[in-house]
Design a protein around this nucleic acid. Sequence first.
DNA 1: CGCACGATGCGCT
DNA 2: GCGCATCGTGCGA
Length: 191
Amino acid sequence: MLPEILSRDFYESVSATELAVKLLGKVLVTEIDNQLTSGRIVETEAYLQNDPAAHSYIGETARNKSTFGPAGHAYVYFTYGMHYCFNVVSQLPGEAILVRGLVPLTGIDVMQRRRQQSAIVNLCNGPAKLAQALGIDRRFDGLPLISSPIYLLDDGFQVGEIVTTTRIGISKGADAKLRYYLKHNKFVSRL
DNA sequence: CGCACGATGCGCT
DNA sequence: GCGCATCGTGCGA
């Protein structure tokens, strides 16, 4: 099939956990200063309502505002004083899907330059790495994922077996199994 | 290889 | 002040 930009309905018609699974295999694209970069999503995490690990758990603030906005928009946050991470906002207020791993597809030379890293396996295997590789920063927070400079594509790719585990790098809500990744994929951030 | 830790900004208590 | 949905390096085995 011809690649299609995912429509509003894709994001609105499912729960956050379903969306986290449906995003696997889709292609994340950015176009910045005429530079096209893209990668296939192989790892996601769901952050839910009443979820102590979610940024929205404390209620709406300036930082997490985008997670309370429309589904299918970006939530980009800054952390550890140097890293950005990219999420897809889901339907219910405060819910979002963190994208943690991509297979680099287009613009690998651009990603290598942005990351100061030549090994392809190290370009997008982690949430802050893929944000840097695709040039995603604070300017992308709240943008709809429907057109340049950032959007998602369905190119008909069929995912194989999906593994479900606990989420990475959190202390509260650590036993919820809300992380999803494609089995045997080397661009997953951690096994 | 694995583990420990420092970098570094900012939102919240 | 503290702690963070991270990453890279440096050390020891």
